[in-house]
Design a protein around this nucleic acid. Structure first.
Lengths: 112, 112
DNA sequence: ATCTTATTTCGATAATCATCGAAATAATGC
DNA sequence: GCATTATTTCGATGATTATCGAAATAAGAT
């Protein structure tokens, strides 16, 4: 994942409803959830939810599959993994943040 | 970190200049960087940079300290750690993150 | 005190975002 | 074909965000 991909993923998640939505799909696991069930669970109108689903999908964080009349949404785990990896590697000096912060400047990035 | 804190941190980082800025401060390490040097490095006017610094600071991701005439900014590693922990624990419970998600917070990073 | 340097705050503007009802689309059943 | 159900797209609206020059503030030097 590059900087632009990370920004896209962060932007998609940086909204209360969408972060809650992604968490919900993570909990739902491989089964995923149909849009209607998500809207009901989050207490958001269908049209609003559809907007948020599109945002997350645009960032590649969730996937969509039709199942009969419903559209099933699932969390895209590798995408979230990629984001966490990006943050860990680029924004945490490649190691535990707390430990890294207490090391002298020259040593920090080597100690992966 | 709770949902609101995570949203605040994600929102602060979900902007190209700010993510680049945070990365820059991570690279700078404990020394930090004065505002002017950051603005020059990122190619952003001082007033714009000041806006972004305030956003990151509001989310608790960076700290500020006066040094003579300059204001030195530093990455707040524990804050980023908290965000990564939140994402790992709440948004990575599936197959790819199963090992990490099932461990207590303090044990997780050592076992990489 | 005055001048210079570093940075922030102000104010205005353009752009993007979130919300939600109403209308449109897609899939299925009768 | 017509009705029903699930979901999305459209369109309008209010809210937030990003940008940047100009003016204001803060610290230090002479």
């Amino acid at each position: 994942m590059d900087l632009h991909g990370a920004v896209a993923a962060l932007a998609a998640l940086s909204q209360e409803h969408r972060l809650a939505l992604f968490r919900l799909l993570v909990q739902a696991g491989e089964d995923g959830m149909p849009a209607g069930a998500i809207a009901e669970k989050l207490g958001v109108p269908n049209s609003s939810l559809s907007f948020h689903l599109a945002q997350l999908r645009g960032a590649g964080l969730i996937s969509q599959e039709r199942r009969h009349r419903s559209l099933i949404y699932r969390a895209n785990y590798p995408a979230m993994n990629g984001l966490i990896d990006y943050l860990t590697e680029n924004c945490c000096a490649g190691a535990d943040c707390s430990a890294a912060a207490s090391l002298p400047s020259q040593e920090r990035r080597k100690t992966a």
